[in-house]
Design a binder for these strands. Structure first.
Length: 470
RNA sequence: GCCCCCAUCGUCUAGUGGCCUAGGAUAUCGCGUUCUCAGCGCGAAGACCGGGGUUCGAGUCCCCGUGGGGGUACCA
């Protein structure tokens, strides 16, 4: 594609972004970056009653956090601004005047909802009203809307980049409203004027808009502007196959962010919904996605959101992070009130349990391996250990070896355990089980060597002593 | 009601008429590695919605049905 690629993401500020919305932004962004185009953020706030205060900032915050930077938008400006529909009234006005002038649109004085029950279409009552007369009535303040003069017969052909050519019967599309009685533009009208004036080349949006497309195509034609390429991404369904919505299966970006999930992982997972890598690779970095994502491998069929796979992708990304990054990522999430973990201990602790994380916020679910909580259960375990002569022997010898240890690292600790094993004749579970129980109060868990390093010599010795017969 | 879109393992998908006795991923289960769990490695089970065509040959093309989704607003 040699033309200038310009795309847009146009959310309404009615709430936080959820995975369904964000996926649209992800494709727009990926596609645009792939082609070196410009990505525009436009706020569709025409419906004043539905606007939620602060939603615009929140939504921009979510997008930025995901790394989906826009080149033009309400906060960064741009030559095609303003970027809020509420501030673009004059553009709609101008476009409307031109349409009225050319006879492409006409004033309609009918009462709201007038139309036959059968077809549910507006019958075109005011279509043939005298233009001068209509203008005069409007001048006098008579309530009216403005409608587009649409073809009565024939077909409307549109091209969708993922589905190909689609034909709609023109008779199915009535003379729809462009401007309401209160003079606000309708959605379909505002969108087209915006896309034209912002020189959008590719309209990439949810499949739900496919049915709006013939109307919008007609509007582009009426305005005399070339139609953009239409790209309708298949809809995302809830995990159970039903409709995805905030209250049904849709995760909010905010929630995932609060959980400490890697934004790159979210972008990666979302990219896999409806698109596939030519070599079927699934774990991809942002750069790899930008390099690979294009329209030719986008599917047309809808699909379900799968939280399990999201988790898996996230875990894969996390696993590829250097330890340093895991430690930094996890640090703000550690519940210090429950886990007396010193900062230097974070490294070994993460070595021990990073493989079970898919998001940083999950640390607290696993730190219990290092800092057991249940005192009563631990006491029982210790008591049982004290009644076990072989276990006692292991504990005693391990304690001695550990105490004599020069430094305090994983290899040293493991060597000390093995020495204790050699001296007592205990091997395998016979050796590690009593140690693990004494140190972590659990029968299973992460690598004991790393846990010991994280706990420090003093604490480990202390725990061993607590489980030994005095 | 009418219009439009969609249809491969539970889920995400590969597949563009013969390479498909349908491949990969996830989830599930088993084995191995490991003190154990997680991870990792290996393996098992698991799908072309139904019916008609077209063709020497159909998951792939056409039609009908069924199911799901969207639209039919002075909502977006």
């Amino acid at each position: 594609m040699s033309e200038l690629i310009r795309t847009r993401f146009a959310p309404s500020p009615t709430g936080r972004l959820h995975l369904g919305n964000v996926r649209i932004a992800v494709f727009n962004w990926l596609f645009t970056r792939h082609h070196g185009g410009a990505f525009v953020l436009r706020i569709e706030d025409t419906d004043v009653e539905r606007n939620v205060p602060g939603a615009e900032e929140a939504l921009m915050g979510d997008l930025r956090w995901l790394g989906l930077e826009w080149d033009e938008g309400p906060d960064v400006g741009g030559v095609h601004g303003p970027y809020r529909q509420s501030e673009r009234g004059h553009l709609y006005q101008e476009a409307l005047a031109a349409l009225l002038d050319q006879g492409e649109a006409y004033r309609c004085f009918c009462a709201e909802g007038e139309g036959s029950e059968e077809t549910r279409r507006y019958p075109g009552t005011c279509r043939s009203l005298d233009r001068e007369e209509a203008a005069a009535r409007a001048e006098k303040g008579e309530m009216h809307v403005v409608r587009l003069r649409t073809p009565e017969a024939g077909t409307i052909e549109i091209r969708d980049e993922v589905r190909g050519d689609i034909t709609f019967p023109a008779s199915d599309i009535d003379d729809f409203v462009l401007r309401r009685a209160d003079r606000r533009p309708t959605y379909n009208f505002a969108v087209v004027v915006d896309d034209v004036t912002m020189a959008i080349s590719h309209v990439i949006r949810g499949g739900g808009h496919l049915s709006n497309t013939p109307k919008q195509a007609l509007l582009f034609d009426a305005i005399g502007a070339p139609r953009p390429r239409f790209v309708h991404l298949p809809n995302v369904l809830a995990p159970d196959g039903g409709k995805l919505s905030k209250r049904h299966g849709a995760q909010g970006v905010e929630a995932l962010r609060d959980e400490g999930m890697l934004p790159e992982a979210i972008v990666n997972y979302l990219s896999l919904l409806g698109w596939s890598h030519p070599e079927e690779k699934e774990v991809l970095t942002r750069d790899e996605l930008v390099a690979a994502v294009d329209l030719d491998r986008v599917r047309a069929s809808e699909m379900a959101y799968d939280p399990d796979k999201l988790r898996w992708v996230a875990a894969q990304h996390l696993a590829r992070l250097p330890l340093r990054a895991v430690v930094d990522g996890v640090r703000p999430f550690v519940d210090r009130s429950r886990f007396p973990l010193s900062d230097p201990a974070l490294g070994p602790a993460m070595e021990a349990l990073r493989s079970r994380l898919s998001a940083f916020g999950e640390v607290n679910d696993h730190l219990g391996f290092v800092f057991p909580q249940d005192g009563a259960a631990w006491d029982e375990l210790r008591a049982a250990l004290r009644r076990d002569p072989e276990g006692q022997e292991v504990l005693r010898e391990a304690h001695a070896s550990l105490e004599a240890l020069e430094g305090w690292d994983r290899e040293g600790v493991r060597t000390a355990f093995k020495e204790a094993g050699r001296r007592t004749g205990a091997r395998g579970p016979g050796l590690f089980h009593p140690l693990r129980k004494a140190i972590t109060a659990a029968e299973s868990g992460p690598d004991l060597g790393w846990i010991c390093v994280a706990l420090g010599r003093e604490e480990v010795l202390h725990r061993l002593e607590a489980a030994m017969v005095a």
